[in-house]
Design a protein around this nucleic acid. Structure first.
Lengths: 101, 101
DNA sequence: CTATTATAGTTACTCACACTAACTATTACC
DNA sequence: GGTAATAGTTAGTGTGAGTAACTATAATAG
C-alpha cells in the first residue's frame, strides 16, 4: 500500500520486484487487501497484466495508518537525533550494498 | 549454541528467557541440534529439569561457524568505522528500550 | 505467418518459525 | 499432605514466503 500510494498503480511483477519477493506472495497479499476493499485490479493494455491500485477507501485507510505508524516511529526514536537517524540509514544502505555484491 | 558456548550449560527455560521465545520453540530446536550431535542433555539435580550443553563436536562446529560468521560480518561492515558501529549498536539498544516501555 | 519462446499471473504444495493450550512429572509451600 | 508452581513435551494452529507447474497472452525468429 505504501508503494501504490507513493508510486501509483502497479503490476504484480512490479510490486514483487519492489518488495523483493516472488509473484505468488504478491497474488496472495493483493487478494487479501482486495477482499478488505483496499485495492482494486484493472486490466492493463496488455491483456496478460493487471494493474493494481488503491481504492478511495484504501487511500483513506493508508493515510490513517500512516499517522499511527509515524507516531510510533517518533516514540521509538526518542533520544536519537535527526542527524544520528540519517547516519544510521546511510550505514544500513551501505550494509545492504555490501551484502548484494 | 552461542549462548551455551559463552555461558555454559543451561535449561530449556533459561534458553527461552535468553532468546525471548516460548519453551516449545526451545524443545524443538534443542532436539534438532541434538540429532545433529551438537548438543546433549543431562539431568540437573532437580529431576524436572534437563541441563543442555554443547558436545565436543558441537563446540568444534560452533567455533568453525563462528569464524565464517565473523568473516561475513567484516565483509558486510566494509566502509563503516568501528566508531560508527558502536554508535549504531547504542542506537539500536535505545530503540529496543523505547519499544519495551 | 506460424512455431517457439518469453512474460504475467495463478494454483497447489511445501517449508520454516513460532505461538497457545493442554498435558505429564516433579518440586515447593501453607 | 494437598494445592500450587515449575520444567518440559505434545498437538494443533497461524503467518509468511518459496518452488513447480499451469493458463493465457504477447513477442520474435525462421
Amino acid at each position: 500500500m505504501y508503494y501504490l500510494y507513493n508510486y501509483g498503480a502497479a503490476t504484480n511483477v512490479g510490486i514483487s520486484h519492489y518488495q523483493g519477493v516472488e509473484k505468488p506472495t504478491i497474488t496472495r497479499n493483493v487478494n487479501r487487501l482486495e477482499e478488505l476493499g483496499y485495492l482494486e485490479q484493472v486490466k492493463g493494455k496488455d491483456n496478460r497484466e493487471k494493474r493494481i491500485q488503491l481504492t478511495k477507501f484504501g487511500i483513506t485507510i493508508y493515510e490513517d495508518v500512516r499517522v499511527t505508524i509515524d507516531q510510533f516511529e517518533q516514540e521509538i526514536l526518542g533520544g536519537i537525533t535527526e542527524e544520528e537517524q540519517l547516519k544510521m540509514i546511510r550505514m544500513m544502505k551501505e550494509i545492504r550494498n555490501n551484502i548484494m555484491k
